[in-house]
Write a protein that binds this DNA or RNA. Structure first.
Lengths: 214, 214
DNA sequence: TAGATTGTTAATCGATTAACAATC
DNA sequence: TAGATTGTTAATCGATTAACAATC
């Protein structure tokens, strides 16, 4: 397996999104030039990125939108179903549970967990809420591979440990803190501050009239 | 103004987070080596990154944690107060409003907006909810600079236009779609799929025992 | 066929890492 | 002083962009 560059990996979902839109509008064929233009990228870069997915284009014609979408989905392994637990049924957890488009990317939320007694036994968007201490046994039983962490920072490590105990393969961490885990457990820290830093930086740059590429 | 590399900008909030933790634990001085170790980075890279903030270290001693924190906050312009509107008072919007740590980064939510009649006039975590059509006038009046978009994809462009009409400087877009805006308006698209792609990629890599650096 | 677009190699650019003198 | 760490220059690495032959 060839390692895919991180930047390529981050661009692929953007191509996917654009291509889905195009397909909705009845577009059947598309060239790297058009894609590049739409996403403000270089067309060579688009071709290089798409090459990783193994898809083949035709000179003069370009690529078939449908083929491209399937190739990207396949390459991202988003055609594989992954069952997930959402831990923390607060606002952010509810938002995750409510956004059912994650299924389009293979991610299925099968249960949620919270420490709040009053929430246990209820459902959020059809997903049942259980007590935190049920995590290890249920994760094992249900062969859960992904844990989505939407708990406050101070609870994150404790909950992560329960997920790991349950044999989880990856943790998508939305808590604003870092988590310790054995190296075979994938941790993806989703930090809002990273994005905020990018935002404020751009604001300052615009103020200085240094409007670069973006 | 020297342009800060994007990767540096993304790492700065991570340094900040780590340093705050260190300060809480009473650590007063720290070296680039220690920081690098904690975040799995190269110490030269840490020094280069910190150099952008203008902070100075002392050979043998390292940096003062407090000085470093202030330098990063200042550099990210997070010491400047920015008033913001949250548009979309659903789960994600409520999560944003409830996470009051954004104030630590200068971001103050002064009002929220929703199209749901039943929410208008109520408050979420002390922030009052208004009708969407109040956006342009209120934004102008209150000198709002940032709009946080937590609406469904199909409403995003419409709402963005209202914010722009109100003279907003930047939009932090959490809707899973792209937004058209004049080039002087900063758009930061916060796409969850980008992060999910990184997660699934790492999962596949671990399965192939290609555990790289991370 | 002529022209547009792919796939790929080569050149450039920028970021990371290594090396090391200066310094506390 | 000896040793650790900074600040900075140079070397390396990897990603982006340019160039262009192949091809439909």
């Amino acid at each position: 397996m060839r390692i895919t560059p991180e930047p390529t990996m981050r661009r692929l979902p953007h191509y996917l999104h654009f291509l889905k839109r195009q397909m909705e509008n009845g577009v059947e064929k598309i060239s790297s030039t058009i894609i590049a233009q739409a996403l403000s990228l270089d067309s060579t870069q688009v071709r290089k990125d798409l090459e990783y997915t193994g898809v083949k284009g035709k000179p003069k014609t370009g690529f078939f939108v449908k083929e491209l979408i399937n190739a990207i989905l396949e390459f991202l392994t988003w055609t594989t179903r992954r069952d997930a637990f959402v831990v923390g049924a607060g606002n952010l957890g509810s938002a995750m549970l409510g956004y059912n488009r994650f299924r389009d990317y293979g991610l299925h939320f099968v249960a949620a967990f919270d420490s709040d007694e009053s929430k246990i036994g209820t459902k959020i968007y059809d997903t049942p809420i259980f007590s935190i201490d049920k995590i290890p046994s249920m994760a094992q039983q249900m062969q859960i591979t992904v844990g989505v962490l939407t708990v406050p920072a101070q609870a994150a490590q404790e909950v992560a440990d329960l997920l790991i105990k349950g044999g989880i393969k990856a943790i998508w961490n939305f808590a604003p803190t870092y988590i310790k885990a054995p190296k075979e457990v994938v941790i993806e820290n989703h930090q809002f501050t990273e994005s905020l830093a990018a935002l404020t930086r751009k604001m300052v740059e615009v103020d200085f009239h240094l409007l670069k590429k973006e």
